[in-house]
Design a protein around this nucleic acid. Structure first.
Lengths: 166, 166
DNA sequence: CTCAGTGCAAAAGGTTTGCATCTTG
DNA sequence: CAAGATGCAAACCTTTTGCACTGAG
């Protein structure tokens, strides 16, 4: 029967499901982006892209892992870390350093401000052209070359200040 | 002789040296800031303030620990962490989240931009009034309340881009 | 004299690494 | 079929915590 080989058929089974459920556009482009730099487009990586490149919640590696496991139960946390590193190299995600000591990943690679809540760790994007103004000002005024396309601002998010007296 | 009691005389000896070498102004104010909120001004804390509030290198806790040990050899890393936490509460330092997964501490609590080098992890301050413009813009446009007085921008520092081909 | 603070060692995350096994191209 | 990727477990680092002892106020 089909279950005997956990590492062969099982994986392919899930790959199939993923392929059926996938958004053809972005999936194809993720595969292409991977291959363009010599990376292999494994089902694990595709599944991780599915989650990480679509989430707006700025997930941590752990969070991505949990989501990916739902559709690809055999994936390991180490693979998630390695893949996120690859996606960073391909400029498909940016890494955000949260105050709680874990990295967060952001598929929004256009210029924007990350509003990082110091209480609940929620991160909200704020698209703002000021980012470009600032980075070009920095580049002009100093010998520092801004590379990331995001700027981080810390504070208390709306939800937390509303829930102040809980 | 004077060495017999490592935890008594030894400490006081170093405390004396610290007092002799100290900058009277800032030291007094650190003591006052501590006491004003009910914290005790222990020699360990004063030594840590000496280092952390004067450094422009945005040291990590480990780095502060190493510096403090030079003048106060019996201090422990745990005490450094606890004291830095107190200093943060007193608004005497701000915490910066570096990409290398350790916190960095910044005694510059006026509005400024932190230029964070993704290669060598060096952090440079850039005083810029734009920070206030942006935080007030954010406060006006969203329900997010900016709290920190710094904004983080990532990139490659002058030294690293000069040393590109090493 | 009392309670907060210290120092130690252990625990607790988060992330990386080494290695045998498996799979893509 | 070769080079690269996976999954597991162990190693690593940074930070936090529990607790007996110490010292500031």
């Amino acid at each position: 029967m089909a279950y005997y080989c956990e590492k062969g058929l099982f994986k392919n089974f899930y790959y199939l499901i993923i392929n059926m459920a996938r958004d053809p556009t972005s999936d194809t482009s993720a595969v292409e982006a991977l291959r363009s730099k010599g990376y292999k487009a494994t089902p694990q990586r595709i599944a991780i892209c599915q989650i990480a490149l679509k989430s707006k919640a700025h997930p941590s590696a752990q969070r991505v892992y949990e989501e990916v496991k739902k559709v690809y139960p055999t994936v390991s946390l180490a693979t998630v870390y390695k893949t996120l590193e690859v996606l960073r190299e391909l400029d498909l995600v940016q890494e955000i350093n949260s105050p709680k000591g874990q990295a967060r990943f952001d598929p929004n690679v256009s210029p924007h401000i990350n509003l990082i809540c110091l209480k609940c760790d929620r991160i909200t994007d704020l698209d703002d052209i000021t980012v470009e103004e600032i980075t070009s000002k920095v580049a002009a005024a100093t010998d520092f070359k801004p590379a990331g396309k995001h700027m981080d601002v810390y504070g208390i998010c709306g939800r937390c200040s509303a829930a102040k007296y809980h």
